[in-house]
Amino acid sequence: MTEIDHRVYLAASAIVFVIGFYSLLVQAHVLRRIMALNVMGSGVFLFLIALGSQTPGPVPDPVPRAMVLTGIVVSVCATGLALALADRVQDTTDRCEISEANRHTASSDRKSGIEAEHSEGSAS
């Protein structure tokens, strides 16, 4: 194994990260986006693991490994939270896409404003 340049793993992790990032940009469905985030996360964790195994010496560097553990836990939490939130959004709006329409334009801000009013009026 030692003859393989460790940088291959690092490069692979970069590719995984970018794949995740690309899907995050182009996918509209929330579920796909959450998965894209997880792919990005995996890229980062792969990177840290590869980094840790690269240090000279008998055992791999424990610090990046601990970081990965932390990162995984955070990512699990994030996924759980995001799924619950997405579910709630779907319940209330019957949509499963993150609405992109109201990005920059003021007119759509108006639109979302009206929605908000309804919700404020009824719920708050």
């Binding site: 995001a82 959004v89 993150i98 908000a116 919700s119």
Partner: peptide, 14 residues
Amino acid sequence: GGPAALSAALRYLT
């Protein structure tokens, strides 16, 4: 709780 807030929160989270 409203739909606007929830969508905003979801986008904020991602």
